[in-house]
């Protein structure tokens, strides 16, 4: 149990009569890259927001990094990183200022913060851009910076909500290299995506349909189970039966 970082049991979220997330139960192990798939409107983002402490659940139980989402949601926040599909760095701050700002919020101070900031800038090869406004950089770069900022404080889990939306395949590939690096350092990665090639990179994948988890396993086993040779095949078979969509 010690290496289970996310645990949910019957987690449900209703908006009025609409059941956005319907009794989902799953576990995510430490260091795993967990793919969280589903068509638009399937409830992925809602589920992720509950786990991040941005939204209260209606019923069911969930623990993230060992903390309860009902009562300890502020403690959860110290141990997670989050990067949303909406780009979330301050566009009118410089790259270095953004890194220091978020690092500071997570309690990094003084020399430690400076050192981590410079390390990050060097690792991303942004020495020349560090004093440029984030708003002036291309989207792919912004996303790499946003991800690196989200794991700057070495969280136990990083939540990525469609992190690679709208960027070219090369940049996506580079982004996934960063994800692997993070996973190797022991950070659990919880990622939603619409790209099926990215689903192949995950250790395990869950597919949500209409608020419920329709399938959950390694990509290999899912392909076996659904008798197809790609994740796209698996996804289409499941999503075709979906009743709701945006």
């Amino acid at each position: 149990m010690t290496d289970t970082v996310i645990h949910t049991n019957g987690l449900t979220r209703k908006f009025g009569d609409f059941i956005a997330v319907n009794a989902i139960s799953f576990e995510v192990k430490k260091g795993e890259i967990f793919g969280f798939l589903g068509a638009n409107g399937a409830g992925k983002t809602t589920a992720m927001k509950i786990l991040c402490g941005l939204l209260s659940p209606s019923s069911g139980e969930a623990k993230v990094a060992g903390y309860d989402v009902y009562t300890q949601n502020e403690s959860i926040k110290k141990h997670i990183g989050y990067m949303s599909q909406k780009f979330s760095l301050y566009e009118n701050l410089k790259v270095r200022e953004n890194i220091k700002f978020y690092g500071g919020i997570y309690g990094l101070r003084g020399a430690d913060l400076n050192q981590k900031t410079e390390q990050l800038i060097n690792r991303l090869g942004l020495e020349n851009e560090a004093d440029k406004l984030v708003g002036s950089l291309p989207l792919g770069w912004k996303q790499k910076i946003a991800f690196s900022v989200a794991i700057l404080h070495k969280p136990k889990i990083v939540f990525l909500d469609e992190p690679t939306g709208g960027v070219d395949p090369v940049t996506r590939r580079q982004f996934w290299d960063l994800i692997y690096e993070a996973a190797n350092e022991g950070i659990t990665v919880f990622v939603t995506t619409h790209y099926m090639d990215e689903a192949e990179y995950c250790d395990r994948v869950s597919i949500m349909v209409d608020g419920s988890i329709a399938a959950l396993d390694t990509p290999e086993k899912l392909k076996e189970q659904f008798k197809t040779n790609s994740m796209e095949g698996v996804f289409l078979q499941l999503a075709r039966n979906a009743k709701r969509s945006e």
């Binding site: 402490g53 941005l54 926040k77 949303s84 979330s88 760095l89 301050y90 919020i105 309690g107």
Partner: peptide
Amino acid sequence: EVGTIEQINVTPV
């Protein structure tokens, strides 16, 4: 609107 507030809300601030 930009979404940075969500990013702030997910931090322990």
